[in-house]
Each structure stands twice: as structure tokens, then as C-alpha cells.
């Protein structure tokens, strides 16, 4: 790993935390997700800064940024774009939808019906959209930052579990500390600080970082540890469905990215341990599933499982 990449990462992180206050861990996880070339789902009650984080990340990178506000009447073509009849030429021309950006902020994704959701999710997993038989590749880098409210709120369409695992991580944002909140209040006195954010990275640099992630070495024993954890979820009696192979791969990639963010060229067990809950907890399905307390229960359960797995030394 070159120090150049490292500098880029820390610049990016500083830039974001400048406006997103008291959310260092969430910001770091989002960057990890970006470096792992994958998507992230932010989940919490309204107003804790989900959108802000997405905006700040997008603004820090000089790349195409789209924001899609998901509503009940949003159509798939509102996302992917579609063929529009041009009366002047007498032809249908393809008009790109907002999905053709580098960083997509998908706000309140669970407010839209499943049909629209799946249009987004397909684009996320395939990194391309197909309209009337024509495939259009999405640009590189491509990252979706989706936000959603907890399910107990009215008028939502919860994402099915099968689709949740398109996201590398599900992160609960949480309330900021009191001090941070005070700072939030004062910084918002004049204007929105996020609007003044400068680019620190361009798309090429992001791609370089993403390639750098793959150079991070992972010791054999770490692989074993990772698989032990995955195995534990599969054997756990409280879970109906354990973590898939894709989940294991995601955890692997995320750990590499985290190592890069933390200026290391190798993964340590702590990386795995730290990422297990955000990367895995939305990939399992519990027996006797209770909707309201679902996320927290799963996070606690996964945390407990990790606590039972022996760490290599």
C-alpha cells in the first residue's frame, strides 16, 4: 500500500467528519463500504443525519451524484430512465435515469413499493440496467447509499431479507452525543455546512483505492476465524437462515477495506470482529421473527455469536 492511497483515505474521512459530527464510526464504515465497492444501508429514525452522511460522502468525491427520494408513487423508470418518444426526430431515445451516477443517495428506500425497490436492487447487484433489451452499464465507481426508517413507521414497505443482502452493511446511525449535538446546533446557525464541502477525491482515485483494497493480505488463520463466525451463524439454533457465502465474501472484502482505512496492509482479527455486526446482522433470518425489535435483536445475537468464537492468535 502506498502512503498516497492512505493520505487520500484520511483526507476523505476528515472532509466528511467535518460536517457529520459525532458519527466517526458510521462515517468510517461508509468509507469502508465505498472502498469495498459495495453499497450501504443506513437505518434509523428520521433526523439523525442519514441523508447528511450520504450527501457528505457524495460531495467529497468529484463524481456524478444523484439523489433519489423514494416515494409511494415512484416508478422503476424514474430510477433507471427509459425510452422517450422524441416527436422531432420521430424516434425513441433513451433518457438516463438518476441511477447513472457514481454515488446514489436513495432516500427512504422503504417508502416505495417492492417493484420500484427491485429496480434499484437489480441495478445495485448487476451494476447495469436493461431497458427494452438494451443493456446500459453503470459508471465506475458505483455506490448506493440507501436510507430507511425503522419498520414501525407508517406507510412503509419493508425490504425483504433476500434483498437486504445486496447491501454490504446495514448501519444504525443513532443519536449523537450531547456535545456533538450542541456543535450541530451551532454550526447550523448560518447555513448548511454540507453545501460548502469541497471535493477531495475524483472517480479515478476511488477506483485506485478500490483496487488497493484487494492488495491487503489476509492471513490463513483470519480466514479460518471468519469462516468460524459464518459457521456459527449457520449452526445457531435461534436462526432459521445463516450467513451465505456471499455474506462471508462481503465480510472478507470489508475487512480488507477497513485495514486500508486504518493504514494497514494486512487484516487483523479485530477487523473481522468489528465488522461482523454491520456486515452480517441483516443477512440472517431469525426463528420466531418479531418485526419491531428485529434489527436490535439480530445485532445482539450476532454479537453474542462472535463472542463464542475463538480468535486466532
Amino acid at each position: 500500500m502506498t502512503t498516497e492511497l492512505q493520505t487520500l483515505v484520511s483526507e476523505l474521512e476528515n472532509n466528511i467528519t467535518q460536517v457529520v459530527l459525532g458519527k466517526a464510526e458510521v462515517v468510517r464504515l461508509c468509507i469502508v463500504s465505498l472502498l469495498a465497492s459495495d453499497h450501504v444501508l443506513l437505518e434509523d429514525v428520521p433526523g439523525v443525519g442519514k441523508t447528511l452522511i450520504g450527501k457528505a460522502l457524495a460531495k467529497s468525491i468529484s463524481a456524478g451524484f444523484s439523489r433519489i427520494q423514494f416515494t409511494a408513487d415512484l416508478l422503476p423508470s424514474d430510477i433507471t430512465g427509459g425510452n422517450v418518444y422524441n416527436p422531432q426526430t420521430g424516434q425513441f431515445t433513451y433518457t438516463r435515469g438518476p441511477i447513472f451516477g457514481n454515488i446514489i443517495l436513495a432516500d427512504e428506500i422503504n417508502r416505495t413499493p417492492p417493484r420500484t425497490q427491485s429496480a434499484l436492487l437489480e441495478a445495485m447487484s448487476d451494476r447495469q440496467v436493461t431497458i427494452d433489451g438494451v443493456t446500459h452499464a453503470l459508471p465506475q465507481p458505483f455506490m448506493v447509499i440507501a436510507t430507511q426508517n425503522p419498520f414501525e413507521f407508517e406507510g412503509t414497505y419493508p425490504l425483504p431479507e433476500s434483498q437486504l443482502d445486496r447491501f454490504l452493511m446495514r448501519i444504525a446511525v443513532g443519536y449523537p452525543d450531547r456535545e456533538d449535538e450542541i456543535q450541530v446546533l451551532s454550526s447550523h446557525r448560518i447555513n448548511e455546512p454540507v453545501d460548502n464541502l469541497q471535493h477531495v477525491l475524483d472517480a479515478q482515485q476511488v477506483v485506485a483505492l478500490q483496487q488497493g483494497v484487494r492488495q491487503v493480505t489476509v492471513d490463513e488463520s483470519i480466514n479460518g476465524y471468519l469462516l468460524d463466525i459464518v459457521d456459527a451463524t449457520r449452526k445457531c439454533e435461534e436462526l432459521r437462515v445463516g450467513v451465505s457465502t456471499r455474506g462471508a465474501l462481503c465480510l472478507y472484502r470489508a475487512a480488507q477495506a477497513l485495514a486500508l482505512v486504518e493504514n494497514r496492509s494486512f487484516v487483523i482479527p479485530d477487523d473481522i470482529k468489528r465488522l461482523t455486526v454491520p456486515v452480517l446482522s441483516h443477512r440472517v433470518i431469525a426463528k420466531g421473527y418479531l418485526q419491531g425489535t428485529h434489527r436490535q435483536a439480530m445485532e445482539t445475537l450476532i454479537g453474542r455469536l462472535v463472542d463464542d468464537v475463538a480468535v486466532p492468535r
Binding site: P46, G47, T71, A72, D73, E154
Partner: peptide
């Protein structure tokens, strides 16, 4: 009461 924001389709 938490705050105000622009109306979006789907809001009651």
C-alpha cells in the same frame, strides 16, 4: 413535533 420538511408524494 420534530421538524418541518417539504411535502413528498406519499405523505399524509
Amino acid at each position: 413535533f420534530y421538524g418541518l420538511r417539504e411535502w413528498r408524494p406519499g405523505d399524509s
